[in-house]
């Protein structure tokens, strides 16, 4: 599935533009990392893609269809959202949490049936967490919760996945696992757009790195291109060196 964002602008107060003429084109199978300081517009961009914020100007197209003309249900069939941390005020079993991913395919007045349960179990099996299906989500570790949210996104049948800082609350091992998981999903044809603050992870896992500043894209390059120019150092106003050790990029700030 192809995502096309053209001249997208958004403002909360009608004066300061949080997104300012942003354009981005992405194809299936790509792993795109969004880097930007706090307030750069990453969350606003996600909210606009999800339809929780209405764009002021511009167009968002998925496979040529204007996203603003699709219903919430149709949009959910195209774009899935994996939040940083899901609400824990009400805790459900893992199976029910993943079943929520099938909501876009059942009637508003119906509950998930056997077919949806099978889809959810298949998604759980795929991420190796079928054994957790009867556990409550508030009893899971951060890494397990992330897997549940990924399973939910997969059972949603959407091909565009938006990850909001997926590794920020995870330990190092789970950060690596989560990023590898996202990469394996993109190899299956999913388009993953991942917002992150971790430059090194972006360099090592992404196909493209988009630098966002005050609602504008200031750079859209491959990790190899970024490693060779000074865009990152200029972007963060921080002298840094990017070295390649074997197949891994290492970003060293010069403090």
């Amino acid at each position: 599935m192809k995502l096309e964002i053209r001249n997208l602008s958004f403002s909360y107060d009608g004066r300061r533009k949080v997104l300012d003429g942003l354009s981005l084109s992405a194809d299936e199978g790509q792993f795109i990392c969004l880097l930007g300081r706090n307030g750069a517009g990453k969350t606003t961009l996600f909210r606009t893609l999800l339809g929780t914020l209405r764009k002021k100007e511009g167009e968002i197209l998925t496979d040529g269809d204007d996203l603003s003309k699709l219903s919430a249900r149709e949009r959910a069939g195209r774009i899935a959202y994996i939040p940083q941390e899901s609400s824990q005020s009400f805790s459900y079993t893992v199976l029910n949490a993943v079943l929520m991913g099938t909501t876009n395919r059942i009637s508003t007045l119906a509950s998930p049936g056997e077919k949806e349960v099978n889809t959810a179990i298949e998604a759980l099996r795929r991420f190796g967490i079928e054994a957790l299906k009867d556990r409550k989500t508030d009893s899971l570790s951060g890494g397990e919760r992330q897997l549940v949210l990924c399973a939910r996104a997969v059972s949603q049948n959407a091909r565009i996945l938006l990850f909001d800082e997926p590794t920020s609350s995870l330990d190092w091992a789970n950060q690596i696992r989560t990023l590898s998981l996202i990469r394996s999903l993109t190899r299956e044809g999913y388009l993953a757009i991942v917002s992150t603050h971790n430059v090194q992870d972006a360099l090592n896992y992404a196909d493209r790195i988009v630098l966002l500043d005050r609602g504008r894209i200031v750079s859209d390059s491959t990790p190899a291109e970024l490693a060779e120019n000074s865009a990152l150092a200029d972007f963060y106003s921080l002298p840094l060196t990017i070295k390649r050790v074997d197949d891994t990029y290492v970003c060293i700030p010069e403090l």
């Binding site: 929780t52 949009r75 959202y81 909501t103 508003t108 949603q156 938006l162």
Partner: peptide
């Protein structure tokens, strides 16, 4: 009748909307 959407809406507006609920 709206028991399932009520389940989904407890995840918060952003998630519920992304899951296909007209919040």
């Amino acid at each position: 009748l709206i028991r399932w959407p009520l389940n989904v809406i407890t995840t918060g507006d952003e998630e519920a909307s992304s899951l296909g609920i007209n919040t």
